[in-house]
Nucleic acid binder design. Structure first.
Length: 255
DNA sequence: GTTGAGCGTT
């Protein structure tokens, strides 16, 4: 009962996946199991964790055996305070394989009765791609990215508002945050009677940006290499010494 | 030691 997620997916043939969000970083599958198992038969509980640190990501997946039970758990456990944090329970919208699922029910592609095990699409690479696309974004969820966007304080409000079961299912959160940025910026540039003085205030700026010219013989390649090889120190130190030698062999020892 | 939008693994 404590080996959830350690033995891989047991059987998701007829199970309904529930997504539990807003859980504490200390909450484990074992903690959620008894909580969700009380409302139905939980076949598996999995909490994705970071590959680097191994810490929980703040959400978990609970698989129920029946949809009615899952729905019940969603309505009962949704908004429940766990470990001092209000969790959000809802049906998973995406499957483990990025497959579409309905009401948490994984809609597996119909297998052709032909043959026994079709090699589907044998890819040369397994999951090298992984989910870096999301991992990178969540990497800095400390309090920087949200500080700027979540600063409006509306994200939290809309969440609570969305709790209305009979709310508007058709209404979907507009993630066009980038668009907002554009709109806001557009407003800023109200030329015409804005401030002509400003335009002539720094006409030179266009010509000399803050960019530091790579002069002094600093070629872009050098910069690139420096950035690309942070562990250059690992390379043969001798090679570098040879370079120093041509400049001042004696100084090397001194320095 | 911190954090907080979101969708998953042996």
């Amino acid at each position: 009962m404590s080996h959830f997620g350690r033995s891989g997916p047991p059987d998701i043939r007829d199970t309904y996946s529930l997504l539990v969000l807003n859980i504490t970083f200390r909450t484990t599958a074992d903690d959620l199991f008894p909580l969700f198992d009380k409302y139905g038969k939980v076949v598996d509980v999995f909490i994705p964790r970071d590959r680097r640190t191994g810490d929980s990501r703040g959400f978990a997946f609970v698989r129920y055996k029946y949809q009615d039970e899952a729905q019940k758990a969603v309505e009962k456990l949704d908004g429940r305070v766990v470990d001092g944090r209000e969790i959000m329970v809802q049906f998973a919208k995406y499957g483990p394989n990025a497959e579409r699922i309905h009401k948490g029910k994984i809609m597996e592609p119909v297998y052709k009765s032909k043959g026994r095990s079709r090699s589907r699409s044998p890819r040369p690479r397994y999951k090298d791609d992984y989910k870096d696309r999301d991992y990178r974004r969540r990497s800095r969820s400390r309090s920087r990215g949200r500080d700027r966007e979540g600063r409006r304080g509306r994200d939290r409000d809309y969440r609570h508002r969305s709790r209305s079961r009979s709310g508007s299912p058709d209404y979907h959160k507009d993630r066009g945050r980038g668009r907002n940025d554009d709109d806001r910026r557009s407003r800023s540039r109200s030329y015409g009677s804005a401030s002509p003085a400003r335009r002539s205030a720094s006409p030179r700026r266009s010509q000399s940006p803050r960019r530091t010219p790579p002069s002094r013989g600093a070629s872009p390649d050098a910069v690139k290499q420096k950035d690309r090889s942070p562990t250059s120190k690992s390379l043969s130190p001798r090679g570098r010494r040879a370079d120093s030698r041509s400049r001042s062999p004696h100084s090397d020892a001194d320095d």
